[in-house]
Amino acid sequence: MAELQTIRFRLNGRPVELAVQPYETLVEALRRGFQMYSVRESCGQGLCGCCTVNVDGRAVSGCLYLAVLVDGCDVQTVEGLGTLNQLSPVQEAFVECEGFQCGFCTPGMIMMATQLLQENPDPTDEEIKHYMSGNLCRCAAYPEIIAAVHRAAEKLRAQTAAGNTPATAIMAQR
């Protein structure tokens, strides 16, 4: 067995630390250490998007990312976006547009959509497909997901028009 390495990073805004095996993936570490069950390994090859995690503002596949590499980083999961009672605008939009069926791929979809809207506040269908094409939904709720991204974009634009910065608008409003 290789040596454990202690990593320190911010998880959904809070400082944390965890001793990890060098071969442990980010999805394994987040579930084992912090019960971040929104981060799910499905295909194990970075293709389905169920393990989408944000590291230093970039979406990555948690199943292909070594946990040790987030040492010193800012890590975000869906758990950090909103809560049951206070959803983020993207989460609200997914509920309103029914952008899911079984829900297993949903956190990954929401993470990607959130990142997309930070980069591009008013994406076209085409741009949504480009950005989200690495996230798969076996229930095939794709039309509803596209609608949800448009709806979320409207919500975010309304928020920024009301004076919120894009970075705060994307989070649940408390």
Binding site: R31, M36, Y37, S38, V39, R40, T77, V78, E79, L81, G82, T83, L84, L87, Q91, F94, V95, E96, E98, F100, G103, F104, T106, P107, I110
Partner: peptide, 19 residues
């Protein structure tokens, strides 16, 4: 009616045996 588990699914809290 919106699915009863909507909030649970979009927050990643929905219970799966996987978890």
């Amino acid at each position: 009616v919106k699915r009863l588990e909507s909030q649970a699914k979009v927050t990643g809290r929905a219970e799966y045996i996987h978890n």
